[in-house]
């Protein structure tokens, strides 16, 4: 059982150096339709729908466990152009990489 922690999304936002530019982590519009996973050329089933959900719910361990997945994204934005909710998926993944750099790789 994972304890939900709504502060995690804020931590991800704070980890992003460009968070003031308006492209901060934001996935709350996601309807979980799954089109992002379906179009992904890397076949990353986890990304980005479930991953973002982990962040929004604050399941930090699951986010950290998926470091490999987060770095396997090509940032090709196939998902982003197909997203009906207009979520900036690639920007969100970049935010998460900053978070992982700090939290996992201690950069």
């Amino acid at each position: 059982m994972a304890l939900l922690n709504p502060d995690l999304a804020d931590q991800v936002r704070q980890a992003t150096p460009w968070s003031s530019s308006g492209h901060e982590f934001n996935a709350s519009a996601c309807m979980n339709c799954g089109v992002c996973g379906a179009v992904c050329p890397m076949g990353i089933e986890l990304l980005p729908r479930k991953l973002f959900r982990y962040v929004l719910l604050g399941m930090e361990d699951q986010v950290k466990e998926n470091t490999e997945t987060i770095y396997s994204c090509l940032l090709c934005k196939m998902c982003e152009v197909n997203c009906p909710a207009g979520v900036h998926i690639a920007e969100n993944v970049r935010s998460l990489r900053h978070f992982i750099n700090r939290q996992v790789f201690r950069l």
């Binding site: 979980n32 339709c33 799954g34 089109v35 089933e45 986890l46 479930k50 197909n82």
Partner: peptide, 27 residues
């Protein structure tokens, strides 16, 4: 199936619909 179709393409006389079942997390 809870999910959005990402692509429809023709294969023989069939139309293949690709999507994700978001409840399973499987394509």
């Amino acid at each position: 199936i809870r999910g959005r179709v990402s692509k429809v393409y023709q294969k023989g006389d069939k139309l293949v619909c690709l999507g994700e079942d978001t409840l399973l997390g499987k394509k």
